[in-house]
């Protein structure tokens, strides 16, 4: 789909997705906090619908394209060329729809469905990025460094990107378009957290592995094993904390805590937090304002112990 991103300072449309308005509330709140502090803003798409993630496409190609297309159409209706999503699954399905809609007959068909459902048409022209890319591109590590009030000094953080942030490049354009991260060795999160004063494990081996979130409920053996690797690898490399950028990853890992404890022992558990929670902390928010108590792995207890108010 056309790579036009509109004016460079455009306020992008913001697609929260179901998670950020539900279980991932802490992500949403801390994200808004960070954006405000960095002088960035996003315009929420009202009346968005679920994007279908990776599930719907296994049942129906047509529905799996109409769902994200409606959201992209709403964003274009707001006059925006850029859409920012905070969930890896949403980034995947929105970019996948853009890819499918670059085919003209498909676009015609999907628009017929949209019109029949009373939604605006979508003729392309909305490029999708992850909120991590947005913060990195618009504010950048430099501005973050200057805005830090309380550096995360002494914290060793494992940057966990998960799977669908950076891949597949044929959908996300990642690694191919300027301002996008590397699909196999992403670095944006490393740079932002380093700017916040944390020690970041750049060579963290589980950076882009899957957390098993796609089968969080339907294949527990797999989701427990992968969630455990995310923490085990971080632990092995000496991390105090794992930073995530995806609500599905965060919720899946934390949902498996008890099972990981049973299988691998208590030592295997590390506190896990959204990257925006950690950034908010560095930019001056309190542990409470960053909603760190919401996380089942209780990073709030750990961070209070390290002297964060």
């Amino acid at each position: 789909m056309s790579a036009s991103r509109g004016p460079a300072d455009e306020v992008p449309a913001y697609y929260p997705g179901c998670s950020l308005d539900g279980l991932g509330k802490a992500y949403e709140v801390s994200c808004q906090w960070v954006l405000r502090r960095l002088g960035l803003s996003l315009d929420r798409i009202v009346d968005y619908n679920c994007c279908g993630a990776t599930e719907v496409k296994n049942l129906s190609q047509e529905v799996s394209v109409v769902l994200p297309a409606r959201n992209l159409a709403l964003a274009r209706g707001m006059g925006r060329h850029q859409v920012v999503a905070a969930c890896n699954g949403c980034v995947y399905s929105l970019t996948r729809a853009n890819d499918a809609l670059s085919d003209e007959p498909t676009r015609g068909r999907i628009n017929d469905h949209l019109t029949a459902g009373g939604s605006p048409r979508y003729d392309g022209g909305a490029s999708v990025q992850h909120v991590l890319e947005f913060i990195h591109n618009r504010a950048g590590p430099e501005r973050v460094r200057h805005s830090v009030k309380r550096p995360l000094a002494g914290l060793t953080v494992a940057p966990y990107y998960g799977c669908l942030y950076s891949r597949p490049k044929r959908y996300t354009g990642v690694g191919l378009t300027p301002g996008t991260d590397d699909p196999e060795h992403p670095e944006f999160l490393d740079e932002l957290l380093t700017a916040c004063g944390a020690t970041v494990l750049t060579d963290y081996s589980a950076k882009t592995i899957c957390c098993g979130g796609g089968h969080a409920l339907s294949d527990l053996d797999v989701s427990v094993a992968f969630s455990a690797s995310v923490m085990n690898e971080a632990k092995r490399a000496g991390a105090d904390l794992v930073a995530t950028i995806c609500p599905l990853g965060q919720i899946n890992i934390e949902n498996n805590l008890d099972r990981i404890r049973q299988t691998y022992g208590t030592e295997a558990i590390l506190p896990v937090a959204y990257f925006t929670q950690l950034m908010a902390l560095a930019l001056g928010a309190s542990v409470k304002e960053a909603r760190l108590k919401d996380n089942f792995s209780r990073p709030d207890l750990f961070l209070r112990g390290r002297g964060f108010p």
Binding site: L164, R167, P168, K169, R170, I209, C210, G214, H215
Partner: peptide, 11 residues
Amino acid sequence: WRCVSCNKCVE
């Protein structure tokens, strides 16, 4: 059916 859709293969 156990593929977890991590998309490394597609990448």
